[in-house]
């Protein structure tokens, strides 16, 4: 088996994550979709690191994790705030942008 399969897997997981973001209405699950996409990207980074024999890819994956966790913290806080004021975690309800 080739290492490239990891890349294929990463692409598939990334696409599923994207579909989750687009299809689910619950903000929490949408967020999980985002996390899934980030993880898929991380998988690709790790694989590339192995291919090139350098650790930089792994470092980048670590930084992605850091950024992702920061994003999760803020994002979940926002979801909580929205839920508190609207009694709903549906991102379709947060449509004040609507013209």
């Amino acid at each position: 088996m080739s290492l490239v399969n990891y890349i294929y897997l990463s692409a598939i997981l990334f696409s599923i994550g994207g579909a989750v973001v687009l299809l689910r209405r619950n903000a929490i699950i949408v967020f999980m979709g985002v996390e899934l996409m980030l993880n898929a990207a991380n998988l690709a980074f790790i694989t590339f690191a192995r291919m090139h024999g350098q650790l930089d890819g792994q470092v980048i994956a670590l930084f992605v994790m850091v950024v992702a966790s920061a994003e999760v913290v803020v994002g979940l806080a926002i979801i909580m705030a929205i839920f508190r004021s609207r009694r709903s975690a549906s991102i379709d309800n947060a449509n004040l942008l609507k013209a």
């Binding site: 209405r25 619950n26 903000a27 929490i28 699950i29 967020f31 999980m32 996390e35 992702a68 966790s69 999760v72 913290v73 979940l76 979801i79 909580m80 839920f83 709903s88 975690a89 549906s90 991102i91 379709d92 309800n93």
Partner: peptide, 19 residues
């Protein structure tokens, strides 16, 4: 850690029509 955070929020929000 992160997924526990998610579970906490799920617990706080509870079941929702948007599910």
């Amino acid at each position: 850690a992160v997924m526990m955070l998610f579970l906490f929020v799920v617990m706080l929000v509870g079941r929702d029509a948007s599910d």
